[in-house]
Design a protein around this nucleic acid. Structure first.
Length: 424
RNA sequence: GGAGAGGUGGCUGAGCGGUUGAAAGCGCCUGACUCGAAAUCAGGUAGAAGGUAACCCUUCUCGUGGGUUCAAAUCCCACCCUCUCCGCCA
């Protein structure tokens, strides 16, 4: 959430910022109206409670002096009734205040290009070299079925559409990718590995910003206060919810593998073939908690960490900078590395690297104490490193051979034990 | 699931109806001593929401939510969580 004081002192700036993200700028006016009422009632309630406190203490004294306190008791009782009345009013206002604060998106960083939607994102650079095929490259789902390492039909039987089963070397390649990515980030980039739960409570979902606004894209466990993890960002960022860290602890760098579950509501008809858009996929996620002043340095480092995996796998990719309209609810700045898919001759998002500044930290109440005893909100960042299923799809397409086999990228060979996947 | 114990500040831990938002210790900050550090000594140090130009002032918070009372960390009820034992179990 945003700092309420920022909205109060600079409403025009906030309006402009959220409007550039496509949010309704009148949210700011609604906030200011509720905020004003709320503060008025707070003053009233505080005064009444102050009076009650004083009189109650007087009663204590009177009793000690064995004088009759009945008259004052009656007065305090009346004040008490008045207080409960006003408190009810305040409770409603507090709720409205909170709701509206939680529904206002983060402001874009001023250097983010203004744009209305994904068509106005900016490609910053292209990396790696696109292979020239002497034959027509096949899409990954055809390769996967031909090699009998991906089974879509049977996944439909046990679960439904947008699921897939990995078999044999396909399953092993998936495991190899997970291990490779985690080892790489731990050993080369200094992250600490986390293996979190994937059933997550509501408070955590609010902390990172999935709730209350995006409930329709999440799987909820019936009858329990639990949701299926949509990304490791949620459990890992919430590790430090309601904590006060020491400045010496920062930066904290975590890497976690989790399966991710998404309903993909509103994506009907999009990427229906293959393993690009599915309800359950694996992802290795990097999360950082930093001091407020150096989060942007960390953002570029995080982006480079994600790219490092693509470089190691020798996959061609491009870096896209998201414009304001495609930043999403929580990010202040976001880069999407996109991998090249030769069969479709297009780039596909394979990672997403964001700085949330203090937006999540305010929601999740994650602070740190500076050396001079000041309390500040941390900045949180995260980036996929990488989406495992999409990486597998990219490998199948980029490393395919004319005979239908797929070569194994060099860095994965020690994990999978062979250098080529051939039809069994 | 059953029985018992417990949830208090950054941490440990006392308090169990009325200046107790809370003893003590640790940690942290400032100062003294020191060439510097350690040790020692002195002082400071919970968070949030409001009010105020400011010094400061007020309210709320002792797991969460209700209740009793003029007044609740303290008494009562419900729930949540943690620990120990028992049962079940990959």
């Amino acid at each position: 959430m945003l700092d309420p004081n920022l909205i109060r002192s600079n409403p025009e700036k906030v309006k402009k910022g959220i409007a550039s993200k496509g949010a309704d700028p009148t949210l700011v006016d609604q906030f200011l109206e509720i905020d004003k009422k709320r503060r008025e009632v707070i003053v009233t309630v505080d005064d009444l409670r102050h009076k009650r406190k004083e009189l109650s203490q007087t009663i204590g004294k009177l009793i000690k002096e064995s004088k009759n306190p009945e008259e004052i008791k009656e007065e305090v009782r009346k004040i008490g009734d008045l207080i409960s009345e006003k408190e009810k009013e305040l409770e409603v206002l507090n709720k409205e205040f909170e709701e509206i604060l939680l529904s206002i998106p983060n402001l874009p960083h001023e250097s983010v290009p203004v744009g209305k939607d994904e068509t106005e994102n900016v490609v910053l650079r292209k990396e790696g070299s696109i292979r020239e095929f002497k034959f027509k490259p096949k899409p990954h789902w055809e390769i996967g079925e031909y090699l009998d390492i991906i089974d879509f039909k049977r996944a439909t039987k046990i679960s439904g559409s947008r699921f897939y089963v990995l078999k044999g070397l396909g399953a092993k390649l998936e495991r190899a990718l997970i291990s490779f990515m985690i080892d790489f980030h731990v050993e080369k980039h200094g992250y600490k590995e986390i293996f979190p739960p994937v059933l997550i409570n509501r408070a955590s979902m609010i902390g990172t910003g999935q709730l209350p606004k995006f409930a329709e894209d999440m799987y909820k466990i019936e009858g329990e206060d639990l949701y299926l993890d949509p990304t490791a960002e949620v459990p890992v960022t919430n590790l430090h919810r309601d904590e006060i860290l020491s400045e010496d602890d920062l930066p904290i760098k975590y890497v976690a593998y989790t399966p991710c579950f998404r309903k993909e509501a509103g994506a009907a008809g999009k990427d229906t073939r293959g393993i690009i858009r599915v309800h359950q996929f694996n992802k290795v996620e990097m999360v950082r908690f930093t001091k407020s002043e150096d989060s942007y340095e960390h953002l570029y480092e995080l982006l480079d960490n994600a790219e490092d995996i693509l470089r190691a796998l020798k996959l061609p990719y491009q870096i896209k900078m998201m414009c304001t309209g495609d930043l999403g609810f929580t990010a202040a700045m976001k880069f999407d590395p996109e991998v090249y898919m030769p069969a479709q001759e297009k780039y596909v998002e394979i990672s997403s690297v964001s700085n949330f500044e203090d937006f999540q930290a305010r929601r999740a109440n994650i602070r740190y104490r500076t050396k001079t005893n000041e309390l500040k909100y941390v900045h949180t960042l995260n980036g996929s490193g990488l989406a495992v299923g999409r990486t597998m799809a990219a490998i199948l397409e980029n490393y395919q051979n004319e005979d239908g086999s797929v070569s194994v990228p060099e860095v994965l060979q020690k994990y999978i034990g062979i250098d080529k996947i051939v039809k069994a």
